[in-house]
Computed example of a mutant assay.
Amino acid sequence: MLAKAELSQDFTILGRQYKQLVAALLEAVNMPGIPMEVGPTDRGNFRGFDGNQFYVIERGSLTARYQGKLIYVMEQGEILLPDIAGNQEEEAAVYFGSDAGARLTAYSALEFMRQVFEDPAAIRLWTRLLITYSGLMLRITSGSVEADAGATPGFEIYEPGEIIIRQGDRADYVFNMSVGTAEVIVDDVPVGRIVDGEIFGAMAALTQADRSATVRAKTTCSVVKVPKEQFTELIQRNPATIHSLLIDMANSIVNLNEQLVGLRG
Results as ranks from 00 to 15, higher is better:
residue 45 N to R: 06
residue 196 D to L: 09
residue 134 S to H: 15
residue 73 V to K: 15
residue 205 A to K: 02
residue 151 A to Y: 11
residue 244 S to G: 08
residue 38 V to G: 03
residue 229 E to Q: 15
residue 39 G to S: 14
residue 103 R to Q: 12
residue 231 F to Q: 01
residue 145 V to P: 01
residue 177 M to R: 09
residue 17 Q to V: 06
residue 179 V to W: 09
residue 143 G to Q: 11
residue 161 G to K: 13
residue 170 R to Y: 07
residue 108 S to D: 14
residue 28 A to Q: 12
residue 18 Y to V: 03
residue 247 I to P: 00
residue 106 A to S: 14
residue 37 E to W: 06
residue 53 Q to N: 14
residue 165 I to P: 00
residue 188 D to I: 02
residue 165 I to K: 02
residue 154 G to K: 07
residue 59 R to F: 12
residue 69 K to E: 10
residue 265 G to F: 14
residue 167 Q to H: 08
residue 156 E to Q: 13
residue 84 I to G: 12
residue 165 I to F: 02
residue 64 A to Y: 07
residue 30 N to C: 10
residue 36 M to N: 09
residue 165 I to R: 05
residue 93 A to F: 02
residue 197 G to I: 03
residue 163 I to S: 00
residue 76 Q to P: 05
residue 110 L to K: 15
residue 89 E to Y: 14
residue 141 T to Y: 14
residue 102 A to M: 08
residue 7 L to V: 02
residue 264 R to H: 14
residue 32 P to L: 09
residue 154 G to P: 06
residue 100 A to I: 03
residue 215 V to L: 06
residue 165 I to H: 01
residue 255 N to A: 09
residue 220 T to Q: 15
residue 254 V to R: 15
residue 54 F to N: 01
residue 215 V to N: 01
residue 136 L to F: 08
residue 147 A to V: 06
residue 265 G to N: 14
residue 107 Y to I: 00
residue 77 G to F: 10
residue 59 R to Y: 15
residue 71 I to K: 10
residue 158 Y to C: 10
residue 199 I to P: 00
residue 151 A to L: 12
residue 23 A to N: 08
residue 7 L to E: 05
residue 254 V to L: 13
residue 153 P to F: 15
residue 86 G to D: 08
residue 95 Y to E: 11
residue 167 Q to C: 02
residue 157 I to S: 05
residue 83 D to P: 04
